[in-house]
Amino acid sequence: MVVGSKKQNWWDLAFIIPGLFLFVVFLIIPLSQSIYQSFFSWNGIAISKMKFVGLKNFQMVFTNEYFWHSLVNVLLFMAGGFIVLMPISFLLAIIINKKYKLKRFFKTTFFMPVVLPLTAVGLMWVYLLFPEIGLVPILMEWFHLPEINFLGDPDWAIISVILVNEWTFAGLNMLIFSAGIVAIPEELFESAKIDGATGWQQTRYITFSMMKEYFKIFSILCITGCIKHFNLVFIMTGGGPNRASEMPATMLYNEAFVYKNFGVGNAIGVFLLIAGVTLSLLTNKLFSRGDD
């Protein structure tokens, strides 16, 4: 540090600058611009001037019933995460830590959808859910269940996407829980067995309580992930039918690039920014996770 430290400092700067430059130009500046531009209305044509409109964009967002509906959809997404995704991933995590002969096969299979292109997965499900010809409607007919137009029915569209989302990401969350299960010392189970605890009691008192940290991590990821969700909804329904399955992020896209209300799009962007930061600060504080 003493000899030639001035020269070293220059090298350090040279090491930092390229990455920092890209990050600032392509992320930080656009983000700050989205705040600034949210006070202007703009029709998307590069040469036409932006017009200052004050808070009108925000007013348009908050008086838009579709926007409020998109927040309801965010809540549904979160509910799906806690009611469907969490129990399934937790069970899968227990499974891949038990001594099944097919353990390796299970782990590989459960995780597979996570690595495949989401567009391909989403597209596949669009057709598996297609009324009358799709796999799921056919199976439902077999069991004499009522016919549901999964993606075409405004009441069902978001629920269908949520379920496909849980199907896709169960494997990822399984590994998060699995990391927690692996970390539990084996002796705890040994001594519990000696004390005569049943399998369920072991799960209840050892696994659950030792895994609090991982349920917290899941909760943080789920809550902050849901507010930002875009991809699957965009691929499978585009926010439809009749904007019933919009999420804030898909609405941003539609308002800006379909309806050409770029100002409104930016206002939603600012909302996402504030909501995203608030939620991650809030959840991190709430679940007060230690650093690493």
Binding site: L27, S34, L252, F257, N266, G276
Partner: peptide, 11 residues
Amino acid sequence: VLPIYATLVPM
């Protein structure tokens, strides 16, 4: 932490 979707229009 920040949602990249907010950058779409400025980008």
